[in-house]
Amino acid sequence: MHPIARLVVIIAVVAVVFWLVTRFRDSARGDKVSFRPVEDLPLEVQQSIDLALSHDRKATAVKLYRQATRAPAEAAKAAIDVREWKRG
């Protein structure tokens, strides 16, 4: 095998191993929750969520968020927590 081809193969293997290790580490941490911000939802949904939060109905706000995004419960709760925090 040509030395340059061997070098390219080694670099490719190292890159794949690095990608796999970082991917596994991120999935094993468990503290990473990604969600779509409430601000990115349609205005009607935002208003419904804000109305529920203004009446201290956090569970309803989470339910509305989940219906609009089909997000898992943990992500929906995180999104509503952030919205509540931003509202003050």
Rank of each mutant, 00 (worst) to 15 (best):
M1D: 12
H2S: 14
P3A: 13
A5W: 10
A5Y: 10
V8N: 09
I11Y: 09
I11H: 07
A12I: 05
A15S: 07
V16Q: 00
V17E: 04
F18P: 01
L20W: 12
T22R: 09
R23F: 11
R23D: 06
F24W: 15
R25Y: 10
D26A: 15
R29A: 02
D31Q: 07
K32E: 07
K32G: 07
F35K: 04
R36K: 04
R36L: 02
V38S: 00
V38I: 12
V38H: 04
E39D: 15
E39G: 02
D40L: 15
L41P: 00
E44W: 12
V45L: 12
V45G: 06
Q46P: 02
Q47T: 08
Q47A: 06
S48K: 14
S48M: 15
S48G: 15
I49C: 07
I49S: 03
D50R: 13
D50E: 07
D50Y: 14
L51H: 08
A52L: 07
A52P: 01
H55C: 10
V62C: 03
V62T: 05
V62E: 09
V62Y: 07
K63S: 14
L64F: 09
Y65H: 06
Y65C: 04
Y65R: 04
Q67A: 08
Q67F: 06
A68H: 03
A68I: 07
T69G: 02
T69S: 08
R70E: 13
R70I: 08
R70C: 08
R70M: 11
A73W: 13
A73V: 12
A75P: 04
A75N: 06
A76V: 06
A76R: 01
A76K: 00
K77D: 10
A78P: 00
A79D: 02
A79Q: 05
I80R: 03
I80Y: 01
D81I: 01
R83Y: 05
E84G: 03
W85E: 14
K86G: 04
K86Y: 11
R87E: 00
R87P: 01
G88M: 03
